[in-house]
Design a protein around this nucleic acid. Structure first.
Length: 1125
RNA sequence: GCCGGAGUGGCGGAAUGGUAGACGCACUCGACUCAAAAUCGAGUAUUCGCAAGGAUGUGGAGGUUCGAGUCCUCUCUCCGGCACCA
């Protein structure tokens, strides 16, 4: 049985409340954190010292925390780390005279509250408000300088009114690529009315077709809206969700776990499947490029920037058109157009359009179909996790390489993704690992077209141990007249030599002549090539065939070299072939041979009539949750009158048979042949009775108030026509039909007739936005928070909600957090999300502090929304967060993450109670570098407590007599500390800032022990001022204790005087050949020559330089002197 | 696999190319105390040496430099992100 060791609680010295009598007779209290913190917090509140006004002549500074999600688990000591840092920062800025905005709020919509509501049936609104209260209390006890009058919570209607408002702006916008910004959708409508969509250069759904202004105008509102939906920045669409039939609900990715039988729900372990559901999307892809571009000007950690860049995944390449033997064109996307001559096959994604289109021409359709269904049956996990590539050749179809007109086979394989690029790739197995693997598996040819141009190469020379020494010696003695590096690998008898490419020849000669019995291996990049000793020659440089030498040929040789085998056995050598993926010089590429990859990409693309294009990995963001506890999406699905779309089908001449119309004799328009078809078949025919042909053109949609019974979708109707008539509109057609319909059968034999068909009955609801005046669209009360069972949100079960036609999806968690920082600027505004004045004053966040886990979520979405608002002129800056700092996690004492599950959570309330908020703050800042993760240490925190107390007790020793003279040493320490602390807070080096203050306190204490030295009030106050951001309670109380008016937190920040930093003496380290041999003290500012003379005569130095010629003396002013001899 | 970041005492960590281990924890010894806690003082990388002092030392192997934890090359390990993105 494990014995749990209880952490020992340290006794703290505050126990007694007696006072200490100072030299001066003034009463100095003991440090009692509970009393101090409680009193001073009350005073702050009463005097409202952290309230921030917008109208200020002072310069603004906006310090923001990522607001918390108030969860039932409450805070643990890891959460406030970022808040403490930003608070320290904000406090310093405030003391430096800035008008600091430092607010706090709550990201209060989300899953856990919903989960709780489902389980308990309690109203999540009430529950959430309670949690917020608890959180606030916890935060307040730590002593943050938040202006609570600006608090926001995303679940409150006065807040989400504006989340909904922003949504509507996004919904009513489109992205103009020409102007590279979002514009109102009304602008687009105007363009459509004027010139259709041919000139529109917009970011839109790929299924949109081109149309003219006339066509646009001819469409019904529903049709127009459907077109517009392809352009809106918030649009309706479908996507696959994780559907759990047992639970009757949609699950988020983290609610799913893998099991042996496939994915199951975390709760209950029920199977989870994919289901296509209606969703709302945000067209973040429109901003992909700007989201990358504008990262450049941001003061964020390169780490986060990198993650975002990676996530957006920009890649520049070419779109190249291959021709398929059927005549169809096949576009591929590649970043390596330079390898076009190396294409030996092309691959389509299983979902590629051409696959279905060419169905009839595919000779092995059965095989293809089997493969397609196999792929479909595979779960996404299977498809990704099994690295084994599968595919099938499409027989009967070839693709023609536009570069050299070569015919190459066409394959379908699921390693090609339908959603990226064009869903088709040109395969260059010689220079792409995936193609390489696939080609090897299916025996496809490999054609080499790029040669390495590395200026450096590595060679591993296999030597005996004895030879290694010899070899090294030769190199050391510069027996080889060129630059290289030597290293032994794994302490075995290998030597790795690096050298410039042009020196290869010389090197080979040397090895062959001087070292006997060597064999060797060449490594290019991280790929290996074996070269037999005999075959080493000049053409090693340019004969690329060696890259494809079969391993089997060399295997016996390598096995013979046991150590080499050990070294290389586990790596790429197990491969039979090697493929070279880097840029290089082209070969086997007709007129392009000899060009560099970079140049060739451009010219080859041009040569084959391709296009240079940019692609992004990022996908549009799903902006809908099938949940209750989120902002309602302010849209109404309005039912409208149905519309018919009617399609003309053809002309017929009927041959009346005795028992009625059964067959029709017809002649096709283009192929002059007769054939019999059945009634209802749709064909293109000419009128044959008089050998005349006429066309019926139908381009209109028909609106019906009430659709006649006869118009069933897909039903064929026949209208008689006379040979000499023309029918131009559906209306004419319909009228004729109506006339004929009653005695249809009787008339039909006499005349020709035209067939037409109801193609589409568009009844779909029209989506209209809720009027801005009616916002907020408040969440209705529901009887049950349980899932609706259909996968839809519980809102779908609310009758009033659905009859009003309101959208039943709610917004995702990231909606409210994508703009909250703007609301803080003017949180009570009822007319706008924030007033223009407030927005122009506060502009953007100067310092944003939070966890890096939001790199690809919140931080991306917030930037996206902000850019959108900027495009429409609602905010003055392109980017919301100028500087960003990410705190490291605080792990539990056991090294794991703090979590209820592990039972290792440390509650800040306990720490505040035992040690005080000031100590908690100092400790969390002192633990280590702010951005690094550290484990919480129950033992180490005492050090911070000691420091806080020591500063307090230093107060007893302050000389309050007006005659007291300040000590030069103490003055210097304090000014040093001011300098260091100011700089370090700026650079978020809180741990070293505290260390500097500790050094300062140690210095003062030591100095005070000397006779005649005193700590004067002014200097002591400076010390507590720089400590104030870290220990705000204690320092403010001390401030008042020493008779200062107002709060320390509104007093100006001290500045250091550079003159006071200078010591009269300096310590110079004396080195001989870089080794420290002595330390000497000189007057500050002494000349180099004098110092040098002293150093050379020093008794500690003499033995080291005796009898040696002094070659050089290096002097680093004020620091060291190095004697080289 | 690819892209980032990091490896320094018993622990958290500090060091514009210039005395490696600041500061803190822990530990050891001492002072105070009847005693303990708290507090204060001294010490604390490894190794040789009684000492003075010397040698070694920042994951490993090399290099550049008067001088490298820091810069360069290779390599190992750990952490984070992405993951068949052509």
């Amino acid at each position: 049985m494990a014995i749990k060791k209880k952490p020992q609680k340290r006794a703290l010295s505050h126990a007694s409340k007696k006072t200490v009598t100072q030299k001066t007779g003034m009463k100095f209290p003991e440090y009692d954190h509970k009393k101090i913190e409680k009193t001073i917090q009350k005073e702050w509140l009463a005097k409202n010292i952290y309230k921030t006004e917008t109208a200020s002549k002072k310069k603004k500074y906006y310090v923001l925390d990522m607001f918390p999600y108030p969860s039932g688990a409450g805070l643990h000591v890891g959460h406030p780390r970022g808040y403490i840092a930003s608070d320290v920062f904000a406090r310093m800025k405030r003391m430096q005279g800035f008008n600091v905005l430092h607010p706090m709020g709550f990201d209060s919509f989300g899953l856990p509250a919903e989960q709780y509501a489902i389980q308990t049936g309690k109203n999540p609104n009430i529950f959430t408000e309670q949690l917020i209260k608890t959180y606030k209390k916890q935060l307040e006890s730590i002593g943050f300088s938040y202006d609570w009058s600006r608090e926001v919570a995303t679940h409150r209607p006065d807040y989400y009114e504006w989340t909904q408002w922003i949504f509507l702006q996004i919904y009513n916008s489109w992205y103009d690529k020409t102007k590279n910004k979002a514009r109102p959708i009304d602008d687009l409508v105007k363009i459509f009315e004027k010139s259709g969509n041919e000139k529109v250069h917009a970011v839109c759904n790929s299924n949109s077709v081109s149309f003219s202004a006339k066509e646009w105008k001819s469409w019904s509102e529903i049709e127009q809206q459907k077109i517009l939906m392809n352009y809106r920045l918030a649009y309706e669409g479908y996507s696959e969700v994780n559907w759990c039939p047992e639970l009757g609900t949609v699950l988020a990715n983290d609610e799913i776990v893998d099991s042996s039988t496939g994915p199951v729900s975390e709760r209950g372990g029920y199977p989870v499947e994919k289901k296509s559901m209606r969703q709302w999307f945000m067209r973040i892809t429109a901003y992909a490029d700007r989201l990358i571009q504008d990262l450049e000007g941001l003061d964020w950690s390169s780490h986060i920037k990198e993650i975002q860049k990676n996530w957006i995944g920009k890649s520049e390449g070419s779109e190249i058109e291959f021709t398929v033997s059927t005549g169809d064109s096949l576009k591929v996307f590649t970043t390596r157009a330079d390898t076009l001559f190396g294409v030996t096959y092309v691959v389509l994604a299983p979902e590629h359009d051409l696959v279905q289109k060419l169905k009839l021409q595919i000779k092995n359709w059965n095989e293809v179909e089997t493969y397609l269904s196999e792929v479909k049956a595979k779960s996404e996990e299977d498809r990704v996790s099994s690295k084994e590539k599968t595919g099938v050749e499409i027989k009967g179809i070839k693709a023609i390489n536009p570069a050299n007109s070569e015919e190459v086979p066409v394959w379908i394989a699921d390693y090609v993704l339908a959603g990226y690029g064009t869903g088709a790739v040109m395969a260059v197995p010689a220079h792409d690992e995936r193609d390489f693997e696939f080609a090897n598996k299916y025996g496809l040819p490999i054609k080499q077209v790029i040669t390495s141009e590395d200026s450096f190469r590595s060679i591993v020379v296999v030597l005996t141990l004895k030879d290694v020494d010899l070899f090294k010696k030769q190199l050391k003695e510069k027996a080889i007249p060129f630059e290289f590096a030597v290293s032994t690998i794994s302490k075995r008898e290998h030597i790795q030599v690096q050298f410039k490419k042009e020196l290869l020849k010389d090197f080979i000669t040397l090895v062959q002549n001087q070292i006997t019995g060597t064999n060797w291996v060449e490594i290019v990049g991280n790929k290996n090539i074996i070269v037999q000793k005999d075959s080493v020659s000049e053409d090693l440089l340019d004969d690329a065939d060696i890259w494809f030498k079969k391993f089997s040929e060399w295997e016996p040789f390598i096995r013979g070299q046991k150590s080499l085998w050990d070294m290389l056995g586990q790596n790429q050598f197990l491969r039979e072939f090697v493929c070279y993926q880097n840029d290089g010089i082209l070969k086997n590429s007709a007129q392009f041979s000899g060009k560099s990859s970079v140049e060739a990409r451009k010219v080859i693309t041009e040569f084959v009539g391709g296009k240079l294009v940019t692609k992004y990995k990022i996908r549009d963001a799903i902006f809908a949750r099938q949940r209750y506890w989120g902002e309602p999406i302010p849209l109404i699905h309005k039912k409208v009158e149905p519309k018919l779309e009617i399609k003309f089908s053809g002309e017929f001449r009927y041959k009346l048979l005795k028992d009625g119309v059964k067959t029709i004799e017809v002649r096709a328009l283009d192929k002059k042949e007769r054939k019999n078809v059945n009634v209802g078949d749709i064909l293109k025919f000419t009128h044959v009775e008089k050998q005349e042909s006429f066309l019926v053109q139908v381009k209109e949609l028909w609106n019906f108030k009430n659709i006649p019974e006869i118009f069933k979708k897909g039903k064929h109707l026949f209208t008689d026509i006379y040979p000499d008539q023309e029918i131009n509109t559906i209306e004419e057609l319909y009228n004729r039909y109506k006339k004929v319909a009653p005695n249809y059968d009787k008339r039909i034999d006499k005349y020709g007739c035209v067939a037409w068909r109801v193609e589409k009955i568009s009844e779909g609801p029209l989506i209209i936005p809720v009027s801005e005046k009616k916002l907020p669209l408040e969440l209705p009360n529901v009887k049950s928070y349980a899932p609706s069972g259909t996968g839809e949100s519980p809102l779908a079960t609310v009758k009033a909600w659905t009859t009003a036609g309101y959208e039943t999806n709610t917004m995702p968690g990231w909606a409210g957090s994508s703009w909250y920082f703007l609301r803080y600027m003017d949180p009570k505004n009822k007319k706008a999300f924030a007033d223009k004045k407030a927005l122009t004053y506060w502009k953007d966040v100067d310092m944003y502090v939070g966890g890096q886990e939001h790199a690809t979520g919140h931080l991306l979405y917030a930037r996206f929304w902000h850019k959108f608002l900027y495009d429409l002129g609602y905010v003055p800056t392109k980017e919301p967060f100028k500087s960003l700092r990410n705190q490291g996690l605080i792990m539990a004492t056991d090294g794991r993450k703090m979590s209820k599950r592990w039972g290792n959570v440390i509650n800040p309330d306990d720490i505040v109670a035992t040690y005080g908020a000031d100590t908690l703050r100092v400790y969390e800042m002192f633990m280590g570098p702010f951005e690094a993760s550290q484990p919480w240490s129950t033992e180490s925190i005492i050090g911070s407590r000691r420091f806080v107390e020591r500063v307090w007790r230093l107060g007893e020793k302050v000389a309050t007599q007006s005659t007291a003279k300040s000590s030069e040493g103490i003055e210097r320490s304090i000014h040093k500390a001011i300098k260091k602390v100011t700089e370090d807070i700026h650079s978020f080096g809180f741990n070293t800032a505290i260390s500097a203050m500790m050094i300062c306190v140690n210095d003062i204490e030591n100095t005070l022990q000397k006779e005649g030295e005193a700590l004067v009030v002014r200097e002591y106050l400076m010390l507590i001022q720089i400590l104030a951001p870290f220990a705000p309670h204690m320092s403010d109380v001390l401030w008042k204790q020493f008779g200062q008016k107002g709060s320390i937190h509104t007093a100006p920040w001290p500045t250091h005087n550079p003159k006071k930093l200078i010591d009269q003496e300096m310590t110079i380290v004396v080195q001989v050949n870089g080794k420290v041999r002595a330390e000497l003290r000189f007057d500050t500012g002494m000349q180099k020559e004098l110092i040098e003379a002293h150093a050379l005569r020093d008794e500690k130095i003499l033995p080291w330089i005796e009898g040696k010629e002094i070659k050089r003396v290096i002097y680093v002013p004020g620091k060291l002197i190095n004697i080289v001899c």
